[in-house]
Design a protein around this nucleic acid. Structure first.
Length: 626
DNA sequence: TTAGGGTTAG
């Protein structure tokens, strides 16, 4: 019987070690006190050597053997060698497998157990359910659920929660919800599970509905909901909820802080971001790499490149997320060379890039017109790192070619893609067509976009601008008609600026601001000055079918111009002005801002939906290539 | 011995 154990050679101590370990393993107390897999091997060697059966060990020790057993074959042998293995032994093995990376073995062993005359208990079921969740295996999950009912364990709250979690995780949200509704006792975990799963399915409204119904909420509940809002693109709601949480006297932990910082990054809320940074330092979160990474991202997205870089340099253990975030941030700020340098440094340190790193690198190349370098990165990701390009990478390549004016090459690239191009890919070509004035390819792009993303107003606007620049008024009328037919409305542009901790939002054409008069007066003065420096209003960016003077008036009420003028009114000279815009910065505003930065001798930082524009001394960090 | 929340791009 013992010989069967020696058929598991990898569990025996290595020969060179057996010499040195023999004196120790022959000590009888090790038989009662082994605590690690290595000591288990020593005990094993001893049992074999002395021809002692495993059953000679005390029962608690046998269950310990099971708990330390990382191999399915070995687990089976142990269980077969104990006369009537109690459920605790099985559970110990199942736990090891379920908590390790052997979910398949957990399920296999569960079915083996049924061959013996042993009944699963709540723990058995919980480990198997965990394995099913790991494998997203509803087939076996439903069988275990059946056992739970058959064994009369269905009222156990732990198991109910695990089953609800499993169903929701596997996409059977209807089954999960049904069970949730049927449960007579729900605890805070039950609610949290449902909320998290709804967030994963992007149903944040329903998640919030459940959140508001909760009889009691833990810090985790608040964190789940705050993070849920962030994940679903609702950072404002996330911050509102965070404020409410603080009002209720709860202090954020590391996970909450990460979610709030991510919301600050999305909103460009530097004040709150800095407050959370300070709080994190005071609370000892400094060494948490999630916190550091999110802080870096927050500073990058709030336009504070230097703060981000300082933090990045300070991190002791950088992860690929830290590197990718920093590279992407440098690219967003127009520092492509620095981004590439950082990448080389990363490779020197033998850190393996991932798909996100390459998105960042390709962005850096496309924003700076580095075509050959971009091509090389695209080839390298598969050749050197075994990464399969995803749709985002193809999108970046089309963007790279299109911006550089290689429109035919971009088109051919799309036609030869091994995956179906999406709206982003055709949208990138359309963007290039605008810069390089190619109506024919723009019309082809819009044909595809009408099918792929028919309600996205941005594409129609770009096409209309292309027609307007070519003075093809028939074309612009056609686009207007198309938008009307499809019920597509132009997203209103808005820009925001924070002055003395207060966020001020401006919508294009908005004349309702309490200080509108002063804003318009200052704008008029600035306008006179920039006109002297050669500014000519670019009325072709105005979509409306109105005369030139009216168009100019619209142009002068663009949200970023209102925000800038307000900023100049309210901040002291010398301080940089930071503006956030929901859409891409308009061409006319871009030209005007360059001149204004020179006239007022101020740094103007605009974050648009794509990147940062840092206007200084009459030029922009994007070098007009955007 | 068993359950729930986090970062980079888009």
């Amino acid at each position: 019987m013992l010989s069967s154990l020696s058929s598991v050679p990898h569990l025996l101590p290595p020969r060179e070690n057996s010499q040195s370990s023999t004196p120790q393993s022959s000590k009888p107390d090790l038989l009662h006190n082994f605590n690690t897999p290595f000591e288990l091997k020593q005990v094993h060697a001893h049992l074999i050597k002395t021809n002692t059966p495993l059953s000679a060990l005390p029962l608690t020790r046998v269950s310990f053997v099971c708990a330390l057993t990382p191999s399915f074959a070995y687990a089976q042998q142990i269980l077969e060698r104990v006369e009537k293995p109690e459920i605790v032994f099985w559970n110990s093995c199942l736990k090891t497998f379920a908590e390790g990376d052997s979910p398949f073995d957990t399920i296999l062993l569960f079915y083996k157990l049924r061959q013996f005359d042993v009944f699963p208990d709540t723990f058995t079921c919980s480990f198997v359910l965990k394995a099913c969740a790991q494998l997203l295996d509803t087939f076996n999950g439903r069988i275990v659920h059946g056992y739970v009912e058959k064994l009369g364990l269905q009222s156990n709250l732990f198991l109910q929660n695990m089953i609800v979690h499993l169903y929701a995780l596997c996409g059977a949200i209807g089954d999960a919800r049904l069970l949730f509704e049927k449960m007579s006792d729900r605890d805070v975990v039950t609610w949290n599970i449902m909320i998290n799963q709804l967030v994963k399915r992007r149903d944040v409204e329903e998640a919030y509905h459940l959140f508001s119904l909760m009889p009691e909420r833990s810090l985790r509940s608040w964190t789940s909901m705050i993070s849920g809002f962030v994940q679903c693109g609702k950072p404002k709601e996330a911050i509102q909820l965070f404020m409410k949480m603080e009002e209720e006297g709860l202090r954020p932990n590391e996970v909450t802080a990460v979610a709030v910082l991510a919301a600050c990054a999305d909103l460009g809320d530097l004040d709150l971001g800095r407050r959370i940074h300070e709080y994190s330092n005071q609370s000892g979160f400094r060494r948490n790499v999630h916190i550091s990474n999110t802080l870096i991202d927050m500073y990058l997205k709030c336009g504070c490149l230097e703060d981000a870089r300082r933090l990045f340099d300070e991190i002791e253990e950088r992860t690929i997320v830290s590197w990718s975030a920093m590279i992407s941030g440098l690219a967003m700020h127009g520092q492509a060379e620095e981004a590439l340098k950082l990448f080389s440094k990363m490779i020197q340190l033998e850190i393996k890039p991932n798909g996100v790193t390459f998105v960042a690198l390709l962005h850096a190349c496309s924003h700076m017109g580095m075509i050959d370098q971009g091509r090389e990165f695209f080839a390298s990701m598969t050749r050197d790192y075994g990464l399969i390009p995803r749709i985002e990478h193809y999108g970046c390549m089309v963007d790279l070619f299109s911006r550089a004016g290689l429109l035919q090459e971009a088109h051919e690239f799309i036609m030869n893609m091994p995956i179906k191009p999406n709206g982003v890919v055709w949208g990138a070509l359309l963007g290039g067509c605008k810069v390089h004035k190619n109506i024919e390819l723009a019309e082809e792009a819009i044909r595809h976009l009408s099918e792929l993303d028919p309600l996205n107003d941005g594409y129609y606007v770009v096409l209309s601008n292309i027609y307007a620049e070519a003075e093809c008024w028939e074309g612009t009328a056609k686009v207007r008609k198309l938008m009307k037919e499809r019920g597509v409305k132009k997203t209103p542009g808005w820009s925001s600026i924070t002055v003395d901790g207060m966020l001020h939002e401006f919508v294009a054409g908005d004349e309702s601001h309490p200080e509108a008069e002063e804003i318009f007066q200052l704008w008029e003065k600035l306008l006179q000055k920039i006109k002297l420096k050669g500014y000519v209003p670019k009325t072709s960016v105005v979509l409306l079918d109105i005369d030139e003077t009216e168009k100019e008036k619209f142009l002068y009420r663009h949200s970023e111009k209102l925000a800038l003028t307000f900023g100049l009114m309210k901040t002291s000279s010398g301080t940089p002005i930071r503006i956030l815009k929901n859409l891409r910065v308009c061409e006319d505003c871009h030209a005007a801002f360059k001149l204004i930065s020179e006239i007022v001798d101020r740094e103007i930082v605009v974050r648009d939906r794509n990147r940062f524009h840092c206007f200084k001394d009459g030029s922009c960090s994007c070098r007009d290539y955007w």
